[in-house]
């Protein structure tokens, strides 16, 4: 249930993990990995966001209804990104009028 009371120590541990990940995301920009830089940065950001959602926002202890709602937002975000990119990036590949 969402009225679970987590320990203050856990919140501080999550905070420290978020600070370490922030330092990491700045540090890796000094290493040239080409296009991989973006994916490493996004991987770190997704990890940080997951920690915030699960523990600061209590989703880890929440009802299944809340968990499904959170995942639903991501499903619609993926639909937005995937269908839009499919159109914009795919237009040049097809010799269709109006591109």
């Amino acid at each position: 249930m969402s009225d679970h009371v987590a320990s203050r120590g856990l919140y501080v541990a999550i905070f420290l993990a978020l600070m370490v990940l922030t330092a990491m995301t700045v540090a890796v920009t000094y290493i040239d990995m080409g296009n991989a830089n973006l994916f490493v940065a996004m991987g770190i950001a997704v990890t940080k966001a997951t920690l915030v959602v699960l523990f600061f926002m209590h989703v880890f202890w929440s009802d299944r209804l809340i968990k499904v709602t959170v995942v639903t937002s991501l499903v619609f975000l993926v639909i937005l990104f995937a269908f839009t990119l499919n159109d914009y990036l795919g237009r040049g590949a097809l010799g269709v009028a109006g591109r």
């Binding site: 290493i31 040239d32 990995m33 830089n37 950001a45 966001a49 600061f56």
Partner: peptide, 21 residues
């Protein structure tokens, strides 16, 4: 408040940390 924090978690690398330094 945490949601607004999450948005910044993505904005920081996407706007300030493009490519390598």
């Amino acid at each position: 408040w945490h949601f607004v924090d999450i948005i910044w978690i993505f904005l920081f690398p996407l706007l300030y940390l493009v490519g390598h330094h």
